[in-house]
């Protein structure tokens, strides 16, 4: 126990995002309501966003916007700024997530209109007839 606790504290970002990730995945697989599947999908994607953003944190680093000194020259000390790359990657992934969510909601509206329900078993029942 004495070893496990510091281990969790030092790497709590991975623990948090992985647990969220599996909650989302469980929702996507096990839920019967298609809307809940979409909610699971959003949790799943957000967990990955958190995972990446937490990589970018650097102890003692501020946001990666260069600060200017008194001589109007930027401070170019890399250790003073957080890692910009994960932020850039996640901006892209957020946008992709929004796109997927929009398309999923659209198809769900259509399913509701065609089958009259968004419960998966009822949709399957309707398809079988």
């Amino acid at each position: 126990m004495d070893e496990l606790f510091p281990f969790i504290i030092a790497k709590y970002n991975y623990w948090a995002s992985l647990i969220l990730l599996f909650i989302g995945l469980y929702g996507m697989i096990a839920k019967n309501n298609l809307m809940k599947k979409i909610i699971g999908m959003v949790i799943f994607q957000t967990a990955i966003l958190l995972f990446y953003v937490s990589i970018g944190v650097k102890r003692g680093g501020t946001i990666p916007i260069l600060e200017f000194g008194a001589d109007h020259q930027p401070l170019l000390d890399a250790t003073a700024y957080a890692n910009p790359l994960p932020h850039v990657l996640m901006l892209t992934a957020i946008v992709v997530g929004v796109g997927t969510l929009g398309v999923a909601l659209t198809i769900l509206q259509k399913i509701q209109r065609v089958h009259g329900t968004i419960e998966e078993d009822e949709v399957l029942e309707d398809l079988r007839q």
Binding site: Y14, I55, G56, R59, T79, L85
Partner: peptide
Amino acid sequence: WADPASPAS
């Protein structure tokens, strides 16, 4: 977490 020496950073 937040290790300045990690490969990503």
